[in-house]
């Protein structure tokens, strides 16, 4: 009798703990839904007043005259992201290959944690350094009106996210089973041929996932861009003119949200900008996630 009562009590407390844990697990889903709900809710008015098409593809962003079109932001955000990604890959992937394949165990033991540490440097600090070193340098070097430009933003973002792409690519490269590499070396290929024709193709899904994730981070990065990109929302003319000022989604939100009256059309439009950004980044994340699952299915353990 007593024993069964203890058993019952125990079963209830077990169940209680499980429910608590379940609730904390679904917090992420709830938060994600809440974010979507509030962003849609607040941006509804902007879409209703201006019209979805006019808002997304309007060519002018002119808050003083209540004219809002996201095309300048979209174009500049894409240019910044592509350029930053180029800098990022050109430097980050060779660094990953160096760490995974060329560095000795001792230098790796020092370099890998230091690079992971650098991933934690707050973006505001990168913005600060960009303002102090990068912007004046570009301004003098290229005789620009102001150094705050799309190019400055891209260089800064490209540098900032090197630690991220390097750590993920390095993990992907090291996850390739050593049998693959040994087989290639045994056939007489040298180390570079092995890396190029065996290791990189086998790790390509991991590298792709790293790059997609980085696109999401670059496009969503705020403080560094806000400080160096210039915050003038217009389409650069010609479109490859990266030496002029621009404004991205994040820099517009961060730069203008502090000054708008709550409930004004501008306020709602800024939420709409945030909503477009959120959709974009979420889609990228889901794609990266699918890519990762695909690797696991393709290669088994890694």
């Amino acid at each position: 009798m007593v024993l069964s009562q203890i058993g019952l009590q125990r079963r209830y407390s077990e169940k209680f703990v499980e429910i608590l844990l379940f609730l904390s697990a679904i917090t992420s889903i709830i938060v994600m839904l809440l974010i979507f709900y509030y962003l849609i809710h607040e941006s509804m008015k902007a879409f209703a007043t201006i019209g979805i098409f006019n808002l997304l593809f309007g060519q002018k962003w002119h808050p003083a005259g209540d004219i809002y079109g996201l095309l300048p932001l979209i174009v500049v955000a894409l240019v910044v992201t592509v350029l930053a990604l180029i800098f990022n890959i050109i430097i980050g992937v060779p660094l990953a290959i160096f760490l995974a394949e060329l560095a000795g165990p001792r230098s790796r033991a020092v370099l890998k944690p230091s690079i992971e540490l650098l991933a934690g440097v707050p973006s505001i600090v990168y913005g600060f350094l960009g303002i102090i070193f990068l912007v004046p340098y570009l301004q003098e070097r290229f005789y620009m009106l102001t150094g705050r430009s799309i190019l400055a933003g891209s260089i800064l973002l490209g540098l900032m996210f090197i630690p991220y792409i390097t750590t993920i690519c390095e993990d992907a490269l090291r996850a390739v089973p050593s049998e693959f590499k040994e087989g290639s070396l045994a056939l007489g290929a040298n180390r570079w041929q092995t890396i190029r024709y065996v290791t990189i193709p086998a790790a390509s899904s991991g590298i792709t996932a790293a790059i997609i994730l980085n696109v999401g981070s670059i496009i969503g990065e705020t403080m560094a861009v806000l400080l160096v990109v210039g915050n003038v929302a217009r389409i650069p003319s010609p479109i490859i003119n990266v030496f002029t000022q621009g404004a991205t989604f994040t820099s517009v939100i961060a730069g203008e949200m502090g000054e708008v009256a709550q409930g004004s059309l501008h306020y709602h439009v800024l939420f709409a900008v945030g909503f477009v950004l959120l959709i974009f980044v979420t889609v990228l994340n889901v794609i990266a996630d699918l890519a990762k699952t695909k690797i696991r299915r393709k290669f088994g353990g890694y």
């Binding site: 697990a25 679904i26 992420s28 889903i29 938060v31 994600m32 809440l34 974010i35 509030y38 962003l39 809710h41 607040e42 994730l213 999401g216 981070s217 496009i219 969503g220 990065e221 705020t222 994040t250 939100i253 961060a254 949200m257 800024l270 939420f271 945030g274 950004l277 959120l278 980044v281 979420t282 990228l284 994340n285 889901v286 990266a288 996630d289």
Partner: peptide, 25 residues
């Protein structure tokens, strides 16, 4: 699967969007 996707999307939400969310919520 749903939880994993939700966690990784939450991980990728730009920080400025969290700011907007906080402002509204």
């Amino acid at each position: 699967r749903i939880l994993t996707i939700a966690i990784s999307s939450l991980n990728g939400v730009p920080s400025v969007v969290f700011g907007l969310f906080g402002l509204a919520f």
